[in-house]
């Protein structure tokens, strides 16, 4: 075959591949959003779910998702920042660093169901915290920590070395150079990374089945005492998140309107994910522009 023709053919095939991917994935997203939009209403978002009757909403699950996300981030952000600073600024090229890197990579590639098992064994049983917001958040912290460390490490490394030199040459200590020069410059990428990982944590389900649990007590949204049994703020209570709910309804639900709740829940999950994703990008580039030009 003529080589020009082969070249054209190859181009065509690769273009086709890309087109297929975009089409398939665009179809999936629009399918979820299209079906879901018809189910999502203010009422759906703000009423309690039902185990056997039709017409339930997702209020508690939605709250739980955000609440567990909040605690996970409270644990992960400092750990991720500190770990990222270590990897970017303190780690020497030696065996110890290699070991830490293997650990981070292993944690990052650990199946989330296995992490969930670990959460069950250690947080739920050994520490005797039980199925709870706290167990779920701790489990997700292990899930999210390697991602955050990598994000922060890359963000710090991508700051121009000339910035670091500027700080050191002005007589800043190494630590002050990190906190006053490197971190502010790395901030846009770190923020983008944090929001993106919020999206991942928000959608995670497998790690939560046996750590945060698959039920929620009857929450009383008038009671904000964090130690009360039915308070939404109580971190020792079980908390079924939205993604766990979508899974549970689909795979073992007995309510008559499974499809409606599943459609609506899925659409809310996807929407939340899109919001996290798009806002991360927009915010990151906006701050970056603000810092580097006018």
């Amino acid at each position: 075959m003529n080589r020009k023709l082969t070249d054209k053919l190859a181009t065509l095939i690769f273009t086709l591949f890309a087109a297929v991917i975009v089409l398939v994935l665009a179809a999936l997203l629009s399918y979820v959003l299209y079906l879901g939009i018809q189910q999502v209403s203010w009422d759906f978002l703000t009423s309690k779910s039902s185990n056997f009757r039709a017409g339930g909403g997702i209020q508690d699950q939605l709250f739980n998702s955000f609440y567990i996300l909040l605690w996970t981030m409270i644990f992960t952000i400092p750990l991720g920042l500190a770990g990222g600073i270590y990897m970017a600024e303190y780690a020497e090229d030696n065996k110890l660093t290699a070991i830490i890197r293997v650990c981070i990579e292993t944690l990052a590639s650990l199946p989330s169901i296995v992490l969930g098992m670990f959460g069950l064994l250690v947080f739920v049983n050994t520490f005797d915290i039980g199925y709870s917001v706290l167990s779920g958040a701790l489990t997700l912290t292990i899930f999210n920590m390697p991602i955050m460390i990598r994000t922060c490490e890359n963000a710090i490394r991508s700051v121009s070395p000339q910035q670091k030199e500027a700080g050191l040459a002005l007589g800043y200590t190494h630590w002050r150079t990190i906190t006053t020069v490197l971190l502010p410059s790395a901030f846009p990428s770190i923020l983008t990374g944090i929001i993106l990982s919020c999206g991942l944590v928000f959608g995670e389900a497998a790690a939560l089945l046996y750590s945060a649990g698959m039920t929620t007590p009857n929450l009383d949204f008038g009671n904000w005492n964090p130690f009360a049994e039915t308070s939404p703020l109580n971190i020792m209570r079980p908390a079924e998140t939205l993604s766990v709910h979508v899974w549970k309804v689909n795979s073992e639900g007995i309510i008559p309107d499974i499809r409606d709740v599943a459609d609506g829940g899925a659409a809310v999950l996807v929407t939340a994910n899109l919001i996290f994703n798009i806002s991360a990008r927009l915010l990151g580039s906006w701050i970056h522009r603000k810092l580097t030009s006018k």
């Binding site: 500190a82 780690a91 292990i142 002050r176 990190i178």
Partner: peptide
């Protein structure tokens, strides 16, 4: 001494990844 305290914090975080990995491995 921020220089030293900072170092302690970041070394602890790095060390925690090793602890977490070991814990997962040992418990499982």
């Amino acid at each position: 001494n921020p220089e030293r305290n900072g170092k302690i914090v970041v070394y602890t975080a790095a060390f925690l990844t090793v602890v977490a990995t070991l814990a997962v491995t040992v418990f499982l």
